[in-house]
Lab assay of single mutants.
Amino acid sequence: GKMTGIVKWFNADKGFGFITPDDGSKDVFVHFSAIQNDGYKSLDEGQKVSFTIESGAKGPAAGNVTSL
């Protein structure tokens, strides 16, 4: 299901970062391709987001990332 969290950091040049889930679980990798907006796909440190957990090739990653 949907989770919420805070963006820990995001490197716009490399197109990835990490989200710290509100439930205290392990930080989740986020790739820019998972960001659900029409414009420039980037996130800001400290931004609140909702997301799902998808299993990627390198382990769990955030999917369906939407800013709240």
Rank of each mutant, 00 (worst) to 15 (best):
G17N: 00
D13H: 10
E54C: 04
L68F: 09
G56T: 14
D23M: 09
E54H: 07
S33A: 07
G1Y: 09
G63P: 02
D27S: 07
A57C: 05
K26H: 14
M3W: 13
K48L: 09
F16C: 04
V49S: 00
Q47M: 12
Q36D: 13
H31N: 04
F32Y: 11
S42Q: 14
D27A: 07
V30I: 07
F18D: 01
G56W: 09
K8F: 04
K41L: 10
D13C: 05
S42K: 08
S25E: 08
V28M: 05
G24E: 07
V30W: 02
A61M: 12
H31I: 04
T66I: 14
W9C: 04
A57N: 08
D27V: 06
I19A: 01
D44R: 15
F16A: 02
G39N: 14
F18N: 02
A61D: 04
K8D: 02
F16T: 03
A34M: 06
A61L: 13
G56A: 12
K14L: 14
K41D: 06
A61R: 11
Q36N: 12
K8A: 07
G59I: 05
F32S: 11
I35W: 09
S42V: 10
L68T: 10
N64Y: 10
F18C: 03
S42H: 13
G24I: 04
F51C: 02
F10Q: 01
G17K: 00
D27T: 07
L43H: 02
G5R: 00
F51R: 00
W9M: 04
S50Q: 11
A34C: 04
S67L: 14
V28I: 12
T52K: 07
G5W: 01
G46D: 04
S42N: 08
M3L: 13
N64P: 02
P21T: 06
G39T: 07
D23A: 07
D13F: 15
P21D: 02
P21I: 06
E45A: 11
I6C: 05
N64S: 11
W9N: 03
A34F: 04
G56E: 09
Y40S: 08
S25M: 12
F16K: 02
G1S: 10
K2V: 15
Y40A: 11
K58R: 10
V28E: 01
K41R: 13
N64W: 08
V28R: 02
F16V: 07
V30Y: 04
D27K: 06
Q36G: 08
N11F: 06
L68D: 10
K8N: 06
G24F: 14
L43N: 01
T52D: 11
V30E: 00
K26V: 12
A61P: 02
E54M: 15
H31S: 05
T52P: 01
I53W: 08
S50M: 15
K2G: 08
T20P: 01
I53Q: 05
V7L: 03
K41Y: 05
A34K: 11
V65F: 01
G46W: 05
S55R: 15
F18T: 03
Q47I: 12
F29M: 03
F29V: 03
F29R: 03
N37T: 13
F51T: 00
F18L: 04
I53T: 06
K48W: 11
G63F: 12
F32I: 15
F18K: 04
I53C: 04
F10L: 02
T4C: 05
I19L: 15
N37F: 14
A62Q: 01
G63V: 15
K58N: 09
S67P: 11
D13N: 11
G59R: 09
S67K: 10
F29D: 01
D44Q: 11
K2T: 10
S42I: 14
D13R: 15
V7Y: 01
A34D: 10
F16H: 07
M3G: 06
L43E: 01
G59Y: 07
N37E: 15
D22S: 13
A57R: 13
F51G: 01
F16Q: 04
I6T: 13
I35A: 03
F51A: 01
I53Y: 11
A62F: 01
K14R: 11
I19V: 05
L68E: 10
D13K: 15
K8V: 06
P60R: 14
S55G: 15
Y40H: 15
D27M: 08
I19D: 00
T20N: 07
V65E: 01
G39V: 14
S55V: 15
I35G: 03
T4M: 10
F10I: 03
A62L: 02
I53K: 08
V49R: 00
I53L: 12
L68H: 10
H31M: 05
Q36C: 05
S55H: 15
F32N: 06
Q47N: 07
D22N: 12
D38V: 13
A61V: 14
A12H: 12
D27N: 08
N11V: 05
I53R: 08
G46K: 06
N64T: 09
I35L: 07
G1A: 13
V65T: 02
I6H: 09
I6E: 05
K8L: 12
F32V: 11
F51D: 00
K48R: 07
M3H: 14
G17H: 00
K58E: 11
K58I: 14
L43V: 06
L43A: 02
F29Q: 02
I6G: 03
V7K: 01
A57H: 08
E54A: 09
S33T: 15
T66L: 15
D38Q: 12
F10P: 00
I35F: 07
V30D: 00
S42Y: 14
Q36V: 10
G24D: 06
L43D: 01
K41P: 08
D22W: 08
Y40R: 03
G46H: 08
V49T: 02
V30L: 06
A34P: 02
Q47C: 04
K8S: 08
T20L: 07
A61S: 06
H31E: 03
Q47A: 13
V28N: 01
V28S: 02
P60E: 14
G56Q: 12
E45S: 14
P60V: 15
Y40M: 12
G59K: 08
G17A: 01
V49I: 09
G39E: 13
K14M: 15
A57G: 12
A62C: 04
P60M: 10
S33C: 04
M3E: 06
S33M: 09
S55W: 13
P21W: 04
I53N: 05
V28G: 00
V49H: 01
T4K: 08
W9I: 04
T52N: 09
E54K: 12
D27C: 04
D27G: 04
K48H: 10
K48G: 06
K41E: 07
D27P: 09
G1N: 15
S50A: 13
T52W: 11
S50V: 09
D22Q: 08
G63A: 13
K14C: 05
G17M: 01
Q47T: 12
G59E: 04
V30F: 15
S67T: 15
G15T: 02
K2F: 11
I19E: 00
S50G: 09
P60Y: 13
F32L: 07
I6S: 09
S25W: 08
S50N: 10
A62W: 01
Q47K: 08
G56I: 04
T4R: 07
K26G: 15
E54S: 13
G1E: 11
